[in-house]
């Protein structure tokens, strides 16, 4: 697949995993332009909806302590598997822990994993992509390594990396990040290579401008938009991979509630106590949906070229 995109001019960029979406036109019909932030949001309703939902989740995660929660790790084997009620809004799990509190606190882990992976993989991917785009002799080696890593399905790679270490939030973040880096690197390298051929960049190089200055002035500003869009999709993808890791037992330990491992715990009982799986599933899906919508909207707003090409 090394040259799939090279060989076919109309081919879209490779999708990032799971939540990875190629650019998608807006769901909402285009409407009249208005000015200001409100006008912007009106023009890009997916950003408004996605952003609002995501902000809500961030709010939930930050203020989890004040949202009528109890200690999410407090065991009470004497009142286990209670149905949802006025006292236990989402019921209790097999060890009598309050599912509502776990889901609310779980937002923290899922969002931290999503944001951290998006940030880290973007940063590292940017660095690798820049090196690859500017250092000719390194390019061949780096891209072969990236091709190799990309040919291992990301979920598989993340699972395999988790097998090396023990379950913790940090290790989950590192594993998913490593699996996502090749995609960002390729993206940045592509942007760098196309920018290098722009007349003004060539002129700057000819004039003897030092590479760091070129990068700072001409390259970085132009990579921000595609990387931001890509980072959003990676964030969504990372949250799903986190859930999958927890689901098959290779993720965060159960004493740290995450949506993935709340579902993993409730998995065995989904026929008789479906609410243990249902609530975290809804929260996870809504959050990932919000991030994906945001990504679609950002792509339309920030990267008209990319949106237009498809």
């Amino acid at each position: 697949m090394a040259s799939a995109t090279v060989a076919s001019p109309a081919a879209p960029p490779p999708p990032h995993e799971v939540a990875a979406a190629p650019p998608m036109p807006d769901i909402m019909p285009p409407v009249k332009a208005r000015r200001g932030v409100l006008g912007f949001l009106w023009r890009y309703p997916t950003i408004a909806i996605g952003g609002a939902l995501l902000l809500l989740m961030v709010f939930v995660a930050v203020f989890a302590d004040f949202l009528w929660t109890v200690d999410p790790t407090a065991l009470a084997p004497a009142r286990r598997t209670r149905e949802p009620s006025a006292q236990y809004w989402f019921g209790t799990d097999m060890l009598g822990r309050d599912v509502y509190s776990r889901v609310i606190y779980g937002a923290r882990v899922s969002l931290i994993v999503g944001f951290a992976v998006a940030l880290l993989s973007s940063a590292v991917g940017l660095l690798i992509g820049l090196v690859s785009g500017f250092v000719r002799w390194a390019d061949g080696i780096i891209m072969r390594v990236m091709d190799g890593m990309m040919s291992i399905p990301p979920i598989l790679l993340a699972i395999a990396l988790m097998a090396l270490t023990r379950g913790s939030v940090r290790n989950v973040i590192i594993s998913i990040t490593i699996a996502e880096i090749p995609r960002v690197s390729r993206l940045v390298r592509g942007v760098v290579l196309s920018l290098r051929e722009q007349p003004y960049v060539e002129a700057a190089i000819a004039a003897g401008t030092r590479t760091p200055v070129i990068i700072w002035r001409h390259i970085l500003p132009n990579t921000i938009a595609p990387i931001t869009v890509q980072a959003t999709y990676i964030c969504a993808s990372a949250m799903i991979i986190e859930a999958i890791l927890s689901f098959i037992g290779a993720g965060t330990p159960p004493i740290i509630p995450s949506w993935g491992n709340i579902m993993a715990e409730g998995r065995a009982l989904w026929q008789v106590k479906p609410y243990i799986v249902f609530f975290p599933a809804v929260f996870l899906s809504v959050t990932v949906l919000a991030v994906n919508l945001l990504g679609d909207g950002l792509r339309d707003a920030l990267d008209p070229r990319m949106a237009k090409r498809i």
Partner: peptide
Amino acid sequence: EVTDALLKSLGMTVDFVATD
């Protein structure tokens, strides 16, 4: 998980090694 809660109730610090 019960042990984790028990040790914490005794004021102990727990290094919970979740593995197979």
